[in-house]
Nucleic acid binder design. Structure first.
Lengths: 347, 347
DNA sequence: TTATTTTACTTTATCGATTTAGCAAAACTG
DNA sequence: CAGTTTTGCTAAATCGATAAAGTAAAATAA
C-alpha cells in the first residue's frame, strides 16, 4: 500500500520548502513571486504523484470545512429527498460536501445533530427545524454560522428562511374543490403548530369562511403508522356523511386517505373529491388521477443554496435576514381519456 | 460570540497539561493514573464550559475520521433513500457520520466522488457502483479502506458485497404470472450489463424456458425520461398482442408501464397482468393493486453496516471477503374486497 | 538507608496543511 | 558605490487534538 503523499514529501523531493509547494498548489505562485521553473516542477511532481491535499489538515488550519450540515425530518421522504438531491448537486459543483441527517422532527435528535455537526466543524447549516429547537439555532447564528431554515421557520427568530406560500396553496386547493362542486370540504392534516402546517390550516379556514362553511378538520399525530392513519381517516369520513371533498395537508396523508376512501368503497370524485397539498409523481397514476398543490422543489433547493453562498460570502455582522416565499403551483388532474371513452366500463 | 473552547483552554484554566485533559476526557484517567481530584476538576470544567472536542483535529492526529462515504445512483430514489436512511440510523448510533452522494450511475461521477472522499479522509465506503469503476474500487481496497458494495458488484473483484437474490426474484415473479394464467410473459428492463439487472434477466429467461416460451424483452436506456419510457412501453405492448403478462425490472419501470397500460386502455390483470421487481408502497394503492418482488431494505442496511463494522475492526490483512445474498419476498396483491363486493360496479 | 517501583503528571513531537515574518541575493536608485 | 527595493524563496508558528517518552515526588522493597 503506497502511502499518501503530503506537501512535505513534495517539498523534500524537490528541495524546496513546504511553504513554496503550498503557494504553488494554491495558485498563489505569482502573488508570492515563486519562479516559473520552480512552479512548474512542483506542479509536475504533484501531477505525477497524484497528490491530493488532506482537507482535514486544511480545515484544521483554516477553520473552514466547506461542509454543509443538512437536517431534515427524514431523508427518505420524497419531499426532503428531492430537495436534498438538488442541494447536493449544486453544493458539489461549488466544492462543498454535505452531511445529511434525519431529525424525525424530534427536538432532541436535532439538538444532538447540531452538537455532532459542530464537533465536525460544519460551517453552515440547512435545516428543516423540528419544534423547540429555536434556541439552539439562535446559538448557531450567534456563533456566526450561516443558517438557512426551510419548509418551516420560527417567526420570532431572525433567520434566513426559504418557504412556500402554504396559505395560498391550501386556499387555492380549497377553492378548486368548491368550484368543482364540493360544498362540504374536510381538511386532514397533522397535529402540528409549526408554521407550514399552521399556514395550510389558515388557508383552508379562510377559504371555507368565504362561503360560510364550518370547519371540518381531522388532525393526526405526527409519525402515525400508515395503517392507523387509514383507520382514523375512515372514521372521519364516516362521521361526516355530508362531506363531499377532502383536502389533505401532506401527500402521505393523501395516500392514507386514498386507501381509506377505497376501503370504504366511496367513489372519487363523485362521492368525494380529493386534493393533496404536496404533489407526488404517483397522483397521475391513480384512477382517477389526483390534483395537488405542487411545491417548486428545484426552486427551493436553488434558493437555499444561493442564499447560503451569499451568506458565506458575507461577514456575519452584515448578513441580512430574509424570508423567501416561493409560490406553489396547483396541478389540476382530470380523469384521462379512458374515463371518457368508456364511461360505463365495469370493474 | 464566545469562542470555542479547546483542550488547551481547559488545561490553562486548571493549571494542568493538555495531555492530562485529553486523557481524562477520553476516559483514560485510570489507565493513565490521573488523580481522582484532577479528573473531577477537568470533567466539571469541561461540563460547565460546554466543551466539545474538535473532531477535525482529532481526525488529523489519529488518521481516522469515522466518516463513511456512501455512493448510490441517486439518493432521492426511494430504494436508495430507504437504505441510506437505515444506514444513517445505525451509523449515528455507532458514532459514525455519512457523506451521501449520487453517482447517476456515471463512472466519471463516481471517480470524482472517490477522490473527494479521499481528500476528506473518509475511512470507509459503501458503494452501489456504476459500471467501469472497478479499478478505483480495487485501489481503495489496496489502500486498506473497508469497502462494501451493494445492490450490484464486480464478480472479478474481491470485495465484500451485499446483494439480493435477483435471479430467484424474477424467477418467482415470472412463475407467479404463469400460474395466474399468463402464458406469454414480457420483461421490461434496463439496458444494463450490471449484475443486478443481468441476474434479473436470467431469472426471467430460465423461468420462461421451463414452458418453452420465447423471450419477449424490452430494454430501455438508463435514465430515460419517464414520458419516453411510457411511449416505448406502449409501442412494445402494441407490438406484442399475444403478451398477457409483464414483469418490470424495477419499480420505476413499472410506474411507466402502468401509465402505458392505462393509456392504451388495457385492463389489468385481465388483458395484461403486471408484476414489478422492487416493491413500492404505492402498488397497494393502485386499482387493482400490483404484486411485486420486495427487497429486504432494512435487512440490507443492517447487513451493510454490520459487515462494515466488522471490517473496521479487522486489520486489512485478515479481512475476509464475502458476498451476502439476501432473499427477496414476493408480495401477492389481489384486488381488495371492493372488487369482490361490487364486481359489476360501473365507473 | 539506599534502591526500586509506582504515582501522577508534563514535555515534546506529530498529523498536514496555512500564514506571518524574515532573509539573502539580485536589481535598481541617486 | 552605498542604500533601497524587489525578487524568490524559507523558517517557524499555528490549528486542536493524541501519543511516546520523560520526570519529580511519594511509596515500597531490600
Amino acid at each position: 500500500m503506497r502511502k499518501k503523499i503530503s506537501i512535505h514529501d513534495i517539498a523534500r523531493h524537490l528541495n524546496v520548502s513546504a511553504t513554496t509547494v503550498s503557494f504553488v498548489l494554491n495558485g498563489r505562485a505569482e502573488e508570492m513571486r515563486i519562479g516559473a521553473e520552480v512552479k512548474k516542477r512542483v506542479l509536475d511532481y504533484a501531477e505525477t504523484t497524484n497528490y491530493r491535499p488532506n482537507l482535514v489538515a486544511k480545515s484544521l488550519r483554516t477553520g473552514k470545512s466547506r461542509i454543509i450540515g443538512m437536517m431534515v425530518e427524514d431523508i427518505s421522504d420524497p419531499f426532503f429527498a428531492s430537495i436534498a438531491r438538488g442541494i447536493e448537486r449544486k453544493a458539489y459543483q461549488l466544492g462543498y460536501k454535505i452531511f445529511f441527517a434525519s431529525t424525525e422532527n424530534q427536538t432532541s435528535n436535532a439538538g444532538d445533530l447540531i452538537k455532532v455537526f459542530r464537533e465536525r466543524q460544519v460551517d453552515s447549516y440547512i435545516i428543516a427545524p423540528p419544534p423547540g429547537i429555536a434556541s439552539e439555532i439562535q446559538a448557531l447564528i450567534e456563533h456566526e454560522h450561516p443558517v438557512i431554515l426551510f419548509d418551516r421557520y420560527f417567526p420570532d427568530l431572525e433567520t434566513t428562511n426559504v418557504i412556500v406560500d402554504n396559505y395560498n396553496g391550501t386556499r387555492k386547493a380549497t377553492d378548486h374543490l368548491r368550484s368543482n362542486g364540493s360544498s362540504q370540504i374536510g381538511f386532514v392534516t397533522l397535529e402540528s403548530a409549526q408554521t407550514q402546517m399552521h399556514d395550510r390550516l389558515q388557508g383552508y379556514l379562510h377559504a371555507i369562511a368565504q362561503w360560510g362553511q364550518a370547519p371540518c378538520i381531522l388532525q393526526l399525530p405526527y409519525a402515525l403508522p400508515a395503517n392507523s392513519s387509514v383507520e382514523k381517516i375512515k372514521a372521519f369520513i364516516r362521521q361526516h356523511k355530508e362531506m363531499d371533498g377532502i383536502l389533505f395537508g401532506t401527500n402521505y396523508l393523501a395516500f392514507s386517505g386514498l386507501e381509506a376512501i377505497n376501503e370504504l368503497g366511496r367513489k372519487i370524485p363523485d362521492d368525494l373529491a380529493v386534493v393533496s397539498f404536496d404533489d407526488s409523481r404517483f397522483f397521475r397514476l391513480f384512477t382517477p388521477p389526483v390534483s395537488a398543490v405542487a411545491q417548486p422543489l428545484e426552486k427551493i433547493a436553488e434558493t437555499i443554496i444561493s442564499l447560503l453562498m451569499k451568506s458565506l460570502d458575507t461577514p456575519a455582522s452584515k448578513r441580512c435576514v430574509e424570508t423567501i416565499v416561493l409560490e406553489t403551483e396547483f396541478i389540476v388532474r382530470k380523469s384521462s381519456l379512458k374515463r371518457k371513452k368508456t364511461p360505463s366500463r365495469t370493474r
